[in-house]
């Protein structure tokens, strides 16, 4: 028996008894702490600490071109960096499938919920604002999807919108970027055949299947299943229900972190 089998047995035994670190329930989040505007040079920023997971989102806006198929809209680009300083298993180098999936799932929730009106990012013929959302993972301890989405949304909600005047970008005395909808995400994982919300790193090591559900107050906006395990159709439906319940807590955190 190697170390990881011993750890796995330990985690499984505890989950079978319904025990999780910090004494939390199967479907509860860890403590969440938010720091808004950590990077004043960025147009918007927020650090989210979800348990020991630490994620920083930075927002920058630049003048660029619209997409060719959407000539009257600005663009959003979301990137995610699993920094080598955040975990021993992260290496420097080109983006991995994991970091690309993370960025694209966070992007999908924000885009599908129309959090930012892309038409308002249009400037003039051939010119539009490019909005960059960069998710920096600073310490990994599980559930990057929810921490990343939360950080991105809080950063967006406190983003100052530069102006474009006489072919120059002005970044002084700015109005806030208008946010028209607030998406959040809840990620569930099956560990030892038990469904948990917000898995930490050691629980995630033994996760069989993962389901991220992003929603707003009325609708599911994005979903992504991951890992090699599976969920039944019934489980999917009940997790959609649970998401509408648990997302209220996240929405409250977002609303409290709005700086006017």
């Amino acid at each position: 028996m190697n170390i990881s089998t011993i750890t796995e047995q330990y985690i499984r035994d505890r989950i079978a008894k319904g025990i999780r670190d910090g004494g939390r329930g199967l479907l509860s989040f860890r403590d969440i702490a938010v720091e808004v505007g950590k990077i004043p040079n960025a147009e918007g920023s927020a650090e989210v600490n979800m348990g020991h997971t630490k994620v920083l989102a930075g927002i920058k806006l630049g003048v660029g071109e619209p997409m060719r198929d959407k000539p009257e809209e600005g663009t959003i680009m979301t990137g995610a960096e699993l920094l080598p300083l955040a975990h021993h298993s992260y290496d420097a180098g080109p983006p991995t499938a994991e970091s690309i999936e993370l960025a694209r799932v966070i992007d999908r929730g924000i885009r599908a919920s129309n959090a930012v009106d892309l038409k308002k990012l249009f400037i003039e013929d051939g010119k539009a604002w490019n909005l960059f959302i960069d998710i920096y993972v600073l310490n990994y301890d599980g559930n990057l999807f929810d921490a990343g989405t939360l950080a991105a949304v809080i950063a967006l909600q406190n983003t100052k919108m530069p102006r474009y005047e006489d072919k120059e970008v002005i970044r002084e005395n700015l109005q806030k970027l208008e946010i028209q909808n607030i998406p959040t995400s809840c990620t569930f994982a099956k560990v030892a055949d038990t469904i948990l919300l917000d898995t930490d790193g050691s629980e995630e090591d033994f996760s069989q299947a993962r389901l991220t559900i992003a929603n707003d107050e009325n609708a599911v906006r994005a979903m992504q299943k991951g890992l090699m395990g599976s969920f039944t159709v019934r489980e999917v439906e009940s997790l959609v229900e649970a998401t509408f319940d648990k997302s209220k807590e996240l929405r409250q955190i977002i609303s409290k972190s709005r700086v006017d």
Partner: peptide, 12 residues
């Protein structure tokens, strides 16, 4: 269910 992705808006 072994793959599930979604984007857009769907009610429960």
């Amino acid at each position: 269910v072994t793959l599930l992705q979604m984007d857009g808006a769907l009610s429960r």
